[in-house]
């Protein structure tokens, strides 16, 4: 009985990981991405005055992850634009969201239950993109752990990592705001997901790819739907980070900035730990380093 349920679960995961993304899931990905563009201050005004710039922004929001990943792996930046149907679909959605008479489309999409469905479907695409990105990077660099993590991360978090460029396109130039300084939940989650998928790809994680995709998708969907439904900007990682950061990086990282660096460092530490030595010794080392730092601080 137990075996049977496990088998069916595995089959479910396998069939889930083979669902084609193109029309429906991609559609919801585009809708949610362009919706976020419309939420940006000044975006509507921009679309009236400079439709071309607004369209380019929308394309960056939809395909930013591909562009960044292509940039990192030295492939043509414009590669994804050869998928005519995707670009046309995204353009149509951009047009509908910004210029639909009476703003009907926007209102329909913004209706919370509908939006929750789209958000959930977007997370499905995100996880799939991370997996594909890591597979792609693995194809280029068989032992390039960091390459795989970086590619997966970039694929998952998309345009938020190039927000400065995207703002520049909208005529806003604020180099002091940066996604890396204030990582949002999707960015962090993509980073962790990229680490997990990398571990799976290099066979350190004894789990099949399909089930990892399934589990991680469930996690992302539930988190993101919960966050969207409650309109909160926090993240489930806050508790964990609040616990880990003082341990790894000493005290005084209560504020947001340090926190984020902490999370990044942790994940890299994880992967390194798995690469060279079992994890506990690594964290012990870091722990002792932390205590040393504390001591030196006291001496100061």
């Amino acid at each position: 009985m137990d075996l049977l349920s496990a088998l069916s679960l595995g089959e479910l995961a396998l069939s889930f990981s083979r669902v084609p993304l193109f029309p429906v899931f991609d559609l919801s990905y585009f809708i949610v991405s362009i919706l976020y563009l419309k939420y940006e201050p000044g975006a509507v005004e921009l679309s009236r005055r400079h439709p071309v710039a607004s369209w380019l922004c929308a394309m960056l929001h939809c395909f930013g992850s591909y562009i960044l990943a292509d940039l990192l792996l030295g492939e043509p930046l414009i590669d994804y634009f050869s998928n005519n149907s995707s670009v046309l679909l995204a353009s149509a959605i951009w047009y509908l969201i910004f210029f639909c008479p009476l703003d009907l489309f926007y209102k329909c999409v913004c209706f919370l239950p509908v939006k929750l469905i789209f958000v959930a479907m977007k997370e499905v695409v995100r996880v799939r993109k991370i997996a594909v990105g890591i597979h792609h990077a693995h194809h280029h660099y068989h032992h390039g752990w960091f390459v795989m993590i970086a590619t997966g991360w970039v694929k998952g978090s998309g345009v938020t990592l190039m927000s400065n460029v995207e703002q520049l396109l909208r005529g806003v130039w604020k180099p002091e705001t940066n996604e890396i300084l204030h990582m949002s939940f999707p960015t962090k989650a993509s980073l962790y997901g990229a680490v997990l998928f990398t571990l799976q790809q290099t066979r350190w994680l004894p789990i099949s790819k399909a089930s990892l995709i399934f589990i991680f998708t469930m996690f992302m969907v539930s988190c993101k739907v919960f966050l969207t439904a409650t309109h909160s900007h926090g993240s489930p990682f806050d508790v964990l980070e609040g616990y880990m950061c003082p341990m790894l990086f000493g005290e005084g990282c209560g504020d947001d900035h340090h926190d984020n660096h902490g999370s990044q460092g942790t994940s890299h530490g994880d992967s390194q730990g798995a690469l060279h030595s079992p994890l506990p010794s690594k964290s012990k080392e870091e722990l002792s380093e932390g205590s040393r730092k504390k001591k030196s601080k006291k001496v100061d």
């Binding site: 201050p41 975006a43 679309s47 009236r48 210029f99 639909c100 008479p101 703003d103």
Partner: peptide, 24 residues
């Protein structure tokens, strides 16, 4: 892009009523 602008004042008012993104 322009057929929208004729309707825009009415629509926008409705929108600001219905959801909180009035500033944008």
């Amino acid at each position: 892009f322009g057929c929208h602008q004729r309707f825009s004042p009415r629509v926008k008012k409705n929108e600001t009523k219905s959801n909180g993104t009035g500033s944008s």
